[in-house]
Structures are given as structure tokens and as C-alpha cells.
């Protein structure tokens, strides 16, 4: 690592540790399980930090790797893809396709040098409001450690 690079990474680390960094997390949810789980967190008044934004699709199987890449390019610090638990998919097996594509996405991100922990796949049922709130909290903590997304296109 040359001096300039080292300076940037120190700067990044400082920025990350500083109070200034508020991670922006994008969450893709499926209509039937995970969106309902997010709603249940609300009806149960389970508090979690306001860093996440939710996009609803009918099925996690609709989520393309490009959507996640676009989000990272636009500057999201972390992206979570959520769906029904294996075997519970409203569309029989859409979540399996989501998982397959997600694994492919992880490989692609590795090659691009993006930290693995910036993306995450999680299964949330309609009854798992608490799990949803925990997931968001945990993701924010993880991304806070990683610091701001350096891949944001300028």
C-alpha cells in the first residue's frame, strides 16, 4: 500500500468511526413474507434505527443482481435481499432462484473487490417482526464497521 492509499484508507476508517457516518441500507422485501414481517415489526412497535429503506416486489425471485449493483453504485452502503423461508415461498420456489442469483452476485462482488458483508440474504416470515428489526440493527452495525461505500459512482 503506498502512502496515498494508506492515507485514504485511514481517512475512510476515521470517517467510519466518526459520528458523521450514517449508513444507508436498502432492503428488498417480498410481498408475502418479509414485507409482512417488516409490517409486524411496526404493529409490534419494535424500534430499529431509521437507516433502512424498503422496496417491495412480489417475490424475492424477482430481484436481479443488477438491482443490487445499481443500488451500490448509487451509493447504498448495504443491501439486504429478503424473502420467505425455504419451502414457504408463495410462488413455490422463487426464493431458491433468489438464493442462486444471490450466491452468483456475491462471487461477482468479490471479483469487484466489494466487501461481502455489504450484501446479505435473509429469510423473514410474516410472523418474524422481531427478526426483521434485529436484522436491520445487525446490518447497520456491520456496515458501520465497514465504513461508507467506496464504490459509489461520482
Amino acid at each position: 500500500m503506498n502512502e496515498a492509499e494508506s492515507a485514504t484508507s485511514t481517512e475512510n476508517a476515521e470517517k467510519a468511526l466518526g459520528a458523521g457516518f450514517d449508513p444507508r441500507i436498502l432492503v428488498f422485501t417480498c410481498n408475502w413474507c418479509s414485507y409482512a414481517g417488516a409490517d409486524l415489526a411496526g404493529t409490534s412497535r419494535l424500534q430499529y434505527p431509521p437507516n433502512a429503506r424498503i422496496i417491495r416486489t412480489m417475490c424475492s425471485g424477482r430481484i436481479e443482481p443488477t438491482f443490487v449493483l445499481e443500488a451500490l453504485r448509487d451509493g447504498a452502503d448495504g443491501v439486504i435481499v429478503t424473502g420467505c423461508h425455504p419451502g414457504d415461498c408463495h410462488y413455490v420456489k422463487g426464493n431458491f432462484r433468489a438464493e442462486k442469483r444471490f450466491n452468483f452476485l456475491k462471487t461477482a462482488l468479490k471479483q469487484l473487490g466489494v466487501e461481502e458483508d455489504r450484501v446479505r440474504l435473509a429469510w423473514i416470515s410474516a410472523g418474524e417482526g422481531e427478526k426483521f428489526s434485529l436484522l436491520i440493527k445487525d446490518m447497520i452495525d456491520k456496515v458501520r464497521e465497514l465504513g461508507p461505500n467506496p464504490f459509489k459512482s461520482t
Binding site: A38, G42, T43, R45, Q47, Y48, P49, P50, R53, I54
Partner: peptide, 25 residues
């Protein structure tokens, strides 16, 4: 735009941040 179950109810004590999130949503 869901600003109740996924905003005001889960950020009950963070009025400013919840308002900012509602704008985003």
C-alpha cells in the same frame, strides 16, 4: 408509501430522522 408500519411506528422517538425517512419513502 408506507410511512406508518415501516416508519413512524418503528422510529417513534426519532422525530427528525423519521421525517427524513418519510421524505425518502
Amino acid at each position: 408509501a408506507n410511512i406508518r408500519e415501516q416508519c413512524s411506528w418503528v422510529h417513534s422517538h426519532e422525530h427528525e430522522e423519521a421525517t427524513a425517512k418519510a421524505k425518502d419513502v
